[in-house]
Amino acid sequence: MSCAQTIMDYGLRSLGFGERLLPRSDFTLCQQFTLIGSGLIWNLYFAFFALLFGFFLATGLALAKTSTNPWLRKPAEGFIFLFRGSPLFIQFFLAYEALVMLPRAGVEIFGFTVATSWLTKAWAGALIVLTLNTAAYSAQIFHGALMSVPKGDIEAAEAYGMTGWTKFRRVLWPTMLRLAWPSYTNEAIFLFHATTLVFFSGFPAFQQRGDSLYYASYFAGQTFNPFIAYPIVALYFIVSTLALIGLFGIVNRRLNRHLPGAARRIRYRPQVIR
């Protein structure tokens, strides 16, 4: 079987297209590269959407945490503590068990039946957990940045007569992002790496549709040879991480474009992990 044929058969296997059965014997390098690469789609999916939704949630949480109103501040602090203080692995297990307990037939709300079974699937359930998790970590970063917005900037904005939403959108938010961006890049990398946990925790891989590490451990388990499959995953992740750093670097340059020489290269510091 040629490599092109393998790619046709298994390129989208993780989404359920193509060949149904996974290869069982005589594993070729091409098969391993293709299947593990196909699993990477899930990692990218989880990382992209969790970062997208988590970003807005984190901004809200960071603002709530700076609020003087205890009804806003306390819940935000509690949420951040809960998700930063416990392992993501346990969060996945807990979320899965909780979601499975929802009634199978759906929940009746105002006469409408809301289906719940999709919540126990990895694409939704794990995405929710990852979103909440990254929101908590990012909120902590954004809160720190918000606290270090220069006093003069705020006074200048107020002198111009800006208040409320305008002040936030034009002054506070851009400065907060600019200050937080290097740490936020690290957070994004760690979230991306954490997506490998999804199919190793509570969430089952339906019809063997898993992420890249799921397929790698499948190959390693079948061949008793960890020296091929795992380095392939590592390679994929190194390349993707470099791409991620590049993308965030572009945003960083844009955030700092009014400050010549301030757009330092983002130093990658492994500071947070789940």
Partner: peptide
């Protein structure tokens, strides 16, 4: 560049 869980496995 590599998730720690890969190393754990």
């Amino acid at each position: 560049g590599v998730p720690d869980i890969v190393f754990f496995l």
